[in-house]
Computed example of a mutant assay.
Amino acid sequence: MLRPYIPVLILLAVSVVNAIFMVVLSTVLSPGKATKNKSAPYESGMVPLGGTRERFSVKFYVVAILFIVFDVETVFLLPWAVSARALGWHGFATAMIFVFILTVGLVYEWKKGALEWD
């Protein structure tokens, strides 16, 4: 009864052993001395300015959330585009309603100034 699950259990065991092996190997082989250069924060190769605990503007997070929302829109529209012919006019109308609602939201955010960097 458990015979079909034996390959899955073997794969799971090999994965766990491999993960433990990699962690132990990196601990053994990595140099343990912390130097000033290793402890410094990396900012695109530039000398760090200020502290590392600076506050970000709320607008940064708003733009990030908007970016995620419109990425999710793309995720929903790609499968629709692949099967657009099979869905017919009903599928087209539904997708256009979806795009219209998102466009109204984008225009609202634009008018509110959520996309401007001050």
Rank of each mutant, 00 (worst) to 15 (best):
V107Y: 07
F100C: 05
D71I: 15
G51I: 05
L77R: 01
I68V: 15
E43Y: 12
E54I: 02
S83M: 11
T94C: 05
V107H: 04
M96A: 08
F76E: 01
V104A: 15
V75N: 02
V47D: 12
P48R: 03
L78Q: 06
A84W: 09
I68T: 09
S83N: 09
P41W: 07
F70Q: 06
Y61V: 03
D71E: 11
S83P: 01
T74Y: 06
Y108V: 07
V63W: 01
F92V: 12
S44K: 12
V104K: 01
F60Q: 01
F100K: 02
V104D: 04
S57F: 05
V107E: 03
F98C: 02
V62A: 07
H90S: 15
F56W: 08
A84R: 10
K59V: 02
K59G: 07
E43W: 05
S83K: 12
S44Q: 11
A86R: 13
F56Y: 10
E73T: 03
G91I: 01
V58A: 08
F76P: 02
E73G: 04
S57Q: 09
D71W: 06
I101R: 00
F98H: 10
F67V: 08
V72Y: 05
R55G: 01
Y108I: 10
M96L: 15
P48W: 04
T94W: 11
T52V: 14
A84Q: 08
P79Q: 03
G105R: 00
T52E: 14
A81T: 07
S83T: 14
V75F: 15
M46F: 14
Y61C: 00
E73L: 11
Y61S: 01
Y42M: 09
T103N: 05
Y42G: 01
M96P: 04
F92Q: 05
M96W: 05
R53A: 14
V62H: 01
R55I: 07
Y61W: 12
F70W: 14
L49Q: 15
